[in-house]
Write a protein that binds this DNA or RNA. Structure first.
Lengths: 238, 238
DNA sequence: ATATGATTCAAACACTCGTTTGAAAATGAT
DNA sequence: ATCATTTTCAAACGAGTGTTTGAATCATAT
């Protein structure tokens, strides 16, 4: 009658199997990418039968989607919630750009500090995926992000009325790139440079990452507008 | 005796075969990634025999390395050459940070405008690869970039004596991310946002990309230093 | 013209991939 | 305790992978 599910069980339940697969897949996708991660690697790491993925998710592609969905839905809802709050507090006045930037990118970075939400693993996975979007992942990401990005773009337009919209969209894109590298990069930067920083500082990097990134993003977003060189104009020569 | 190689030849020579493979591989890698691009796809697109890749390059992995090498060595030599010039002109005085940034990132972007150097195709390929570095590619990139990045880091240290070195390294990393997205992103940004910009402007994007990116990068690099929140200090509580 | 080396070619190699199958085991409700 | 459902399991499927092989073809120099 009590029916309390025991904390430890010798035989994992079906619900456990699903999450074990998702956790193993998330980790392996982050380390090796999608194509290089085989079903046998996933089911082996999750200690479940090979057929379990097809049984619970249908196919490998659908598994990939579910790996992202269970984290992205929460993230984007949170982003929308915070933006709603900011707009409510601001009333008719425009919101400070730094608050908008923090609501979008800061929420993502802060997710990395919560291991229950995927932590750094999911963070790096999403970082690598943004540049590696093969076919159906593009479509999935577009759908999952469509509403959120549009809302934030509009908020930035209103917040920076003097900056041309095209410029804001580009800078939003640049900010995405810097953030993606900030995330994936705790390792990925090692490709291109060994830090030359005392290893003692390596530990508290995550604490200081967010303020560091924010300073950079705001600095880039509010930079003086570019001067386009008119000498490239093709109509100057008859 | 004249032996002039005809412009069009029914049977391509061996030297042609190598470059046809490299061109086809570069394009396919950019579109599908390394794992998802098969030898049969490459040799099919290059219209050469399947065994030609193994004959000319040894293996698929060595082909991947050669695809990067033929472009990266030129790029990085050019970067070093320009930095040498800047340092010679500056003498003992520090170089303006914007000149250093342009020498490193601008040279990369300007490469995209020269179709003979790979153009946008190689540009996007390198953009996606920075976050997708599986195993041996990490090592190859590290070797290919080692000297260049170190030289540029030192130049920035000297150019910004008031900024802590750790901060500069991070901001260099952020700049890499923004640039990578600027490159790969002409398509990749579509994942996350449809521009909402007049399609007429879509044509001259490449012209304006460089000044746009430069403004953002300099703005981020020269942004006010972050204030680290001391409340997270673990030693504040006895 | 002939011999030598470089290149191409069709075929096959051993292997891994994602998925399917049908029976066995576990679970939950009556 | 019996039944119906859900979940697990070992085994196999066909298709596609990178690579190798040995003969055929090409180019070049003697």
């Amino acid at each position: 009658m009590v029916q309390a599910t025991p904390i430890l069980r010798a035989t994992p339940s079906a619900a456990d199997t699903r999450e074990r697969i998702l956790d193993a897949a998330e980790h392996l996708f982050m380390e090796n990418g999608f194509e290089a991660t085989s079903m046998r690697m996933i089911t082996g790491a999750a200690e479940v039968n090979l057929a379990a993925v097809n049984y619970h998710f249908g196919s490998k592609d659908q598994l990939i989607q579910e790996v992202f969905r269970r984290r992205l839905t929460w993230l984007n809802q949170e982003r929308l919630r915070i933006l709603d709050e900011l707009e409510a507090q601001a009333g008719e006045k425009p919101i400070k750009p730094s608050l908008i930037v923090d609501a979008f990118f800061g929420t993502l970075i802060r997710m990395a500090e919560d291991e229950a939400l995927g932590g750094k693993t999911f963070m790096r996975l999403i970082g690598r995926t943004m540049t590696d979007p093969s076919g159906f992942i593009r479509a999935f990401f577009a759908e999952e992000y469509a509403g959120v990005v549009d809302r934030y773009k509009q908020a930035l337009f209103k917040s920076l009325p003097d900056v041309p919209k095209a410029e804001i969209v580009w800078r939003f894109h640049f900010m995405l790139g810097a953030t993606s590298y900030a995330i994936a990069g705790t390792d990925a930067l090692r490709i291109v440079t060994d830090w030359g920083i005392e290893p003692s500082e390596a530990e508290d990097r995550l604490d200081k990452l967010l303020p560091r990134l924010m300073s950079f993003l705001i600095g880039g977003l509010r930079a003086p507008l570019p001067q386009f060189d008119p000498s490239i104009d093709s109509s100057s020569e008859p």
